[in-house]
Design a binder for these strands. Sequence first.
DNA 1: CATGAATGAGAATTCATTCAT
DNA 2: GATGAATGAATTCTCATTCAT
Lengths: 212, 212, 212, 212
Amino acid sequence: MPNTASKKKTQVSGGPERRRELLDTAAEVFAAQGYNATTVRKIADAAGMLAGSLYYHFDSKESMLDEILSTFLNELWEGYDAVLGAGLGPRETIEALVTESFREIDRHRAAVAIYQKESQHLVDQPRFGYLVESQRRFEEAWLGTLERGVADGVFRADLDVRLTYRFVRDTVWVAASWYRPGGQHSPEEIARQYLSMVLDGIAVRGPGAGGS
Amino acid sequence: MPNTASKKKTQVSGGPERRRELLDTAAEVFAAQGYNATTVRKIADAAGMLAGSLYYHFDSKESMLDEILSTFLNELWEGYDAVLGAGLGPRETIEALVTESFREIDRHRAAVAIYQKESQHLVDQPRFGYLVESQRRFEEAWLGTLERGVADGVFRADLDVRLTYRFVRDTVWVAASWYRPGGQHSPEEIARQYLSMVLDGIAVRGPGAGGS
Amino acid sequence: MPNTASKKKTQVSGGPERRRELLDTAAEVFAAQGYNATTVRKIADAAGMLAGSLYYHFDSKESMLDEILSTFLNELWEGYDAVLGAGLGPRETIEALVTESFREIDRHRAAVAIYQKESQHLVDQPRFGYLVESQRRFEEAWLGTLERGVADGVFRADLDVRLTYRFVRDTVWVAASWYRPGGQHSPEEIARQYLSMVLDGIAVRGPGAGGS
Amino acid sequence: MPNTASKKKTQVSGGPERRRELLDTAAEVFAAQGYNATTVRKIADAAGMLAGSLYYHFDSKESMLDEILSTFLNELWEGYDAVLGAGLGPRETIEALVTESFREIDRHRAAVAIYQKESQHLVDQPRFGYLVESQRRFEEAWLGTLERGVADGVFRADLDVRLTYRFVRDTVWVAASWYRPGGQHSPEEIARQYLSMVLDGIAVRGPGAGGS
DNA sequence: CATGAATGAGAATTCATTCAT
DNA sequence: GATGAATGAATTCTCATTCAT
């Protein structure tokens, strides 16, 4: 949660609409150029105003990043929590998590891309402590589900489960780097194909024996 | 292994040794903090010298990045070309490319991480035109092999082949973000497990029932 | 008159006024210390602001130089073109060009001094290509007029005309190195004396024969 | 006179030949690019050595400049003093000074060009105090001779004599900016033509009518 | 709400100079 | 005498941020 209770301004008037608009613009630029390489002037240009004017709406460039990421993560966890609390089996949970993830990518493509690129070096800053917490819950959710699946015999036991965790996790999220909302595939369709690959592999199975 | 041992100087040697040492140091910092967030002072600190001194060896911060990336890509393509010229079947080619990729990650972890994070916005600059060329050859190699495999009936025909291409490509390379050389798994072992997941999936196959 | 009175701000005005003010200040410092020896900090000091603030108004130190020189040359050529298009005889043209030149020195003393000192090594840079063009037109105007005068019998035929050209040209422009606007001589008066020297020489003519 | 008695090195071996050679090289580069814009590396390049190596021969970049200028001025004053002590009339003295000046330009073109461009802002530095002294003697020599000539009735009395002084002085010395030794005119020939222009003017004199 | 102008803390880079070899 | 590697101070330029209007 980004610094709640800011001293002054912030959310005066013009409503949350304008704020959201500006954040979307900022997110787009951050995603395209990287946070550090993005100047507030570029954001302002993209928003059709001057750099100084942004400071009426936001405390700092960092607080924009903060708000972008925390908004995204809040929504993500709303979705994830719904899935995790639904009492599904391991395989169904994985399927639901992947599908939910692609929906989030569809909705927050820029934020996801920013998260991918920047979270690594943001975790050190106290302000972004919630990223660490999120990563912990992430691992808990995915790794736990995989372990449950191995125990239940629905996921292979011959694989290093941490490696599998990273494999599945990365497989989903890097898609944000090329995904464009409104493209030919819906998030659900992409999720279906990804799941098919991850669960069953890309190799054609011989009639008798599989594996390598 | 970049910059192993000795945090500071061992500048006994003169010529290209020192250069390589410094580049390894720089790559490490770039990978850890991102290119833009890395100041030359940080690199110099890590190398045990003053910021200005780096300019005796390199023209600019950008030229360090350039040399890091081009050196990596040159070595990568040496390996890839050997694989592609070996006359292997599609499945064996994929296996060899993946294995070779993990070996490169093992050898150039920092460079790979940098490539992942920065190449997207470097491609616009003429100086880094070779990145575009490399990406083209990449697609040619991976996508071509996958298509050949589909035609040969060794890879599934029911998947969008471009999606599969991105899936395999990204899945392998993002591993650089968490891989640590000298860890418990050798590159070959990681490659083996990855290939097993990619080719056969992580789901246990029921004796009769397949997919979802 | 550049930067008259008020050492510091009078930044009541907004737009192009301020720009012109700053350029006048910069020109003064460039002329006094040389372009290379002038730091932007010195300019900023003279303008009563911080070095970085100059970059709100100008792209670079070089672009200030550029604007100073091109503004001067534009005005110069306006004056010269008027003279050259007036259909005067060679002697009257030379007289008018010299007079016009001293007026320009009076108005743009700093710019002229900069031009004298710096143009030689600026001509190599593409950005200052207009200097070459200007020099060409310069030669065309002065040399052409002298040649016409020799042909018409109003200028001596026994002198190397290129040497004469350089003599007249230099004679006029070096004055910028010592001329101070507001001094005891008006530009027109200086022009008159210069012309008298250049046209008739400084030697008293013997009653019968002149020359050496 | 440049800082006599330098602490160490300076003039060890290799003789004054090498030293002179290096100074000539440096002078050439200073003249072409300006003192400030000339890096010691450029000088070293032109001399076929590395920048650091110059410090075996000279204390500093400034001391090179110092030695170049003082050597030139010493030689100049040797020549001037010979002229001034010869007991010539005003007109003959001017003629001899101009001729001597063109000879010096021929011999020390680079030094003269440097002197022209840099002396203005060097005079402030104590180290270059001899420039001020030289300028004083200069004025004494030229202005004195002109005044003597006016008194004697050989130079025109209707001209501002200080203006005439600057006119003659500058006109001669700026020639260094375009003069190339070994060109088609010898220094003596150029001197002859210059004197002819300065003394008698460039205008053809009507049989009866004089000036304008 | 937005602008225009400025601030001030770095950033990359340059370069004269030093010095051990 | 010369080299190679470094130093450290200065320089140009960038940019997040402030604030009076």
